[in-house]
Design a protein around this nucleic acid. Structure first.
Length: 804
RNA sequence: GCCGGUGUGGCGGAAUGGCAGACGCAUGGGACUUAAAAUCCCAAGUUCGAAAGGGCGUGUGGGUUCGACCCCCACCACCGGCACCA
């Protein structure tokens, strides 16, 4: 009888859905909870190979935990606001909501075809009003608690898409949407005060269980650095004191070497002191030029410094009262530190290059050869070099001087030690149609007024025009009935905010909603949030590690602080799945990762085979090149699983298989927690080999074997189990292993002579060294014949090494 | 430039101080078959040797150890993150 995967897989998939086999129970009276989360689907089209890579291990873990007696929450949903729906609307005219509805249906049925054990009753979709009601509610809380503000700011802007982008959306200077170059533009922007949470986010990063390379990526992105903020008095050439320039430096030890100060081109003083700036036209021209420069342009000419001297202003170095000229240059970023730096050309290569370009004098303040290039921080700190030309600090070692100079400045009141973060506030509005509307109105009389919470959701109106207007305003600005409204406060005519929230908004809290997906009175019931707690294991791609995951940390911290959720950490553990690569034109070059759909594999070989094959190719966190090569090994294995029905002999675990089975249980139990599906499959194959060699399997052995394989290949195991045992595999418990059956009475002991492997001998378990040597001298004279030994290393049951 | 990760047969990959290359693919041989497919069995790191057996082998060079893919030092390559970050 052959295994007919088509009908059997379908049978089980229907059964699971109809019977709601994987329903998570709120407040289960006896079972402990376990929350497994897979990054919800971006609703764009069909599931692809990456989904197979990400979902199956999560599914296996969920199924394993259920066998282990946990009440498992394993939900799924759709991240639906965003580009695919909007692009489809622009291109084909299909309403985004319809696109999303069809897309959701598709991915859910495809999930079922993969045999994924989601609780489909908890499915959510970020673009449905009963969900985004709470995204809007969170925004109102942010606004209420002063964590959201609107200001004219310089932001990343994509000229092609006509919209504002966050730093996270324009990594590498490229638009995340269209791949085009991003420019800097001044606009009205809603910001969320994410920077304020930098240190807390680092705390989340420290606490989460996650691969080191991912943690590093996040720490780099947050970009903590310790330094000093120093106030320099600013004067006009006339001698009139205008104010103070605040600079940030991590190298306070070089302050005596400061020969100029550089402001970011966007620095407010350009505008503020324009009457004192003698070459104002030139300064403004430079400012405009830099704004148009793309990131790409800036980065491709790092050595070439551009800048502009600001004539008519100077600052004073507080430690020695030296007069210091002021420049504008685009190497200083408005968003980092104070947007102003002290420049020390002798000890910073960038300043060195700038000084050469603009003929600015240099003062060496730390020993070393600065004739050709700067002696930088890394070098002088490592050597702990001595200071020069630094008044009372001359001759002092750098590490010491760093502290003393900082102390002096603090005592003078001219500086303070600060910590800076590279991560900025989150620009939170987009000039797009398909997103959450902001629940605020602008009233001439009352200013910016938030909607009342009870008026949420503010529903996104229907339209047929999905393009921004010629001024770059959101498509919503064209929907008159939406724009015009009454002020909630005074009742006068007012207008709505017409920008929408970024596509990351809905995904920044969705794991909370799964705990209570249909609640109309809160984002989720607090007691339910408490019950399900943090996500125990969160799987998904690594490409969102510096965006979505950081946003998630940010919102969870905020919600925790306002008492809306019971925990500061959204996730206890995060597993980043590797990528599926195409095969680099080797043998089967016709297929590429993008070209092969998991549905195609399911159609040809079945869902179980597709699940096993992809995960046999490599570990969860590794990148795996996709190939059909080797899938026959998997299908042959599944056929043999099917064939086990025909060789059942005996009831209890047999003597012949007891050790193999116990080892297998141990291996699978341990590796499944780490999502190491490849070694699990290998272990199952080894057991299969043994059973087939012996020509039989007992019923108890088969029971355990099927349960162990079930998380990976749920369909075939459910069917074989039902046929053999007449009951359901889902009602079973995970098999336990017994330590005492992990080892045989006889062990294969490797024997080394002088550290070199010679032979493996079969000896009694735990044999004493004395007996072992006696045994060898009697049976293995070539290895040892009783001669004098310099040394014997014997690790019982592991190794014997004779030093002659 | 700074930071993190990875480096093992023809290929995907096992092994985290104790028999390197498990498991699988591809390959070669055999059985079954009119034949092929499927299935089953056997072989296989490389090199010298008829064989027995020996040499060499986990990116490179050194070190620690009775013993190193594994730990330490230096270097190389690849992948990823950040980057005119003050």
């Amino acid at each position: 009888m052959n295994y007919d995967f088509k009908s059997i897989e379908k049978k089980w998939q229907q059964k699971w859905v109809e019977e709601k086999s994987f329903k998570a129970i709120d407040f289960h009276p006896t079972k402990p909870k376990y929350y497994v989360l897979y990054e919800f689907y971006n609703i764009s089209g069909n599931l692809h190979m990456g989904h197979l890579k990400g979902t199956v291990p999560a599914d296996a873990l969920a199924r394993f935990k259920r066998f282990k007696g946990y009440n498992v929450l394993f939900p799924i949903g759709g991240d639906a606001f965003g580009l695919p729906a909007e692009n489809a609307a622009i291109k084909t005219g299909i309403a985004p909501a319809d696109f999303v509805e069809a897309g959701m249906k598709k991915v859910l049925s495809q999930s079922q075809a993969l045999g994924l054990s989601f609780d489909y009753d908890r499915t959510i979709c970020t673009s449905s009003p009963d969900y985004y009601k709470w995204t809007q509610w969170i925004f109102l809380q942010l606004l209420k608690h002063g964590k959201a503000y609107k200001k004219k700011g310089v932001v990343n802007f994509c000229p092609n898409c006509q919209t504002t982008l966050s730093n996270e959306d324009s990594q590498g200077g490229k638009c995340d949407r269209c791949g085009g170059d991003v420019v800097q533009k001044e606009r009205w922007v809603w910001f969320l005060k994410m920077k304020e949470y930098s240190q807390k986010l680092l705390g989340n990063v420290d606490r989460i269980n996650m691969a080191e390379n991912l943690k590093e990526a996040q720490r780099n992105w947050i970009g903590r650095s310790e330094g000093m903020e120093v106030s320099l008095d600013l004067y006009a050439d006339s001698g009139e004191k205008l104010g103070k320039v605040e600079i940030f430096t991590t190298c306070i030890e070089t302050i005596y070497g400061m020969t100029f100060v550089v402001l970011a081109p966007e620095h407010e003083y350009v505008e503020k002191f324009k009457d004192n700036i003698k070459n104002y036209d030139e300064v403004v021209a430079y400012k405009q030029k830099t704004a148009l420069r793309s990131e790409f342009d800036r980065k491709s000419n790092l050595k070439e410094k551009t800048g502009c001297k600001v004539e008519g202003l100077y600052v004073v170095n507080p430690v020695n009262n030296a007069k210091i000229p002021v420049y504008l240059a685009d190497f200083v970023l408005a968003g980092y530190g104070t947007g102003a730096v002290m420049a020390v050309p002798t000890h910073d290569q960038r300043d060195f290059d700038f000084a050469k370009e603009f003929n600015i004098p240099m003062i060496q303040v730390i020993e070393g050869d600065v004739s050709k290039q700067a002696v930088e921080k890394k070098e002088y700190l490592a050597k702990n070099s001595k200071l020069l030309n630094s008044a009372e600090f001359s001759g002092m070692k750098v590490l010491d001087a760093k502290k003393k100079i900082a102390d002096k400045l603090e005592k003078m009141g001219a500086g303070k030690r600060v910590v800076n973060y590279a991560m900025g506030d989150w620009p939170f509005n987009r000039q797009r149609y398909w997103g959450e509307p902001f629940p605020v109105v602008f009233c001439d009389h009352c200013g910016t007024v938030p909607l009342d919470e009870k008026d949420l959701p503010l529903v996104l109106p229907k339209t047929k025009d999905y393009l921004p207007n010629e001024k770059g305003d959101s498509p919503l600005s064209k929907v008159e009935s939406f724009v015009h409204c009454k002020c909630p406060k005074c009742g006068r005519d007012a207008v709505r905010e017409t920008d929408t929230m970024p596509n990351w908004a809905g995904s920044s809290w969705y794991w909370l909603r799964y705990c209570d997906p249909h609640n109309d009175n809160a984002l989720a019931d607090f007691e339910k949030l408490k019950y399900w707690g943090s996500v125990d294991c969160y799987t998904g791609g690594t490409e969102h590690i510096t965006r979505h995951v950081l946003y998630a940390f940010f919102w969870q911290n905020f919600l925790y602080e306002i008492g809306a959720v019971p925990t500061r950490d959204p996730f206890i553990r995060k597993m980043g799945s590797g990528l599926i690569l195409d095969d680099q034109g080797k043998k089967m070059s016709k297929s590429s990762a993008n070209g092969v759909s998991p549905l195609e594999v399911i159609d040809k070989y079945g869902a179980d085979a597709a699940r096993l094959h992809l995960h046999f190719l490599g570990g969860y966190e590794d990148n795996t090149p996709w190939t059909y090569d080797g899938i026959t090994g998997i299908t042959a294995f599944l056929d043999r699983v099917w064939g086990l029905q025909d060789i059942i002999k005996g009831e209890e675990v047999s003597k012949e298989h007891r050790i193999e089975l116990n080892k297998l249980i141990k291996k699978v139990t341990e590796d499944i927690e780490d999502l190491k599906l490849n070694t699990i499959i290998s272990a199952l194959m080894i057991f299969m080999k043994k059973v087939r060699e012996d020509g039989f399997i007992t019923k108890e052995e088969l029971r355990s074997f099927l349960i162990l394989l079930n998380p990976l290949a749920p369909h075939i195991t459910s069917e074989v189990f039902e046929r053999v045992f007449k009951t359901q595999i889902l009602d079973e418990k995970w098999p336990e292993y017994d330590e005492k059956y992990l080892v045989d009475d006889q062990v294969d002991l490797p024997v080394q002579i002088n550290g070199k492997m010679k032979q493996v001998v079969k000896v009694k378990r735990d044999i004493s060294q004395e007996d072992l040597l006696k045994f060898l001298s009697e049976n293995y004279k070539a290895l040892y014949n009783g001669e004098e030994l310099k040394k014997v290393i014997y690790v019982p049951n592991r190794i014997l090494n004779l030093i002659k």
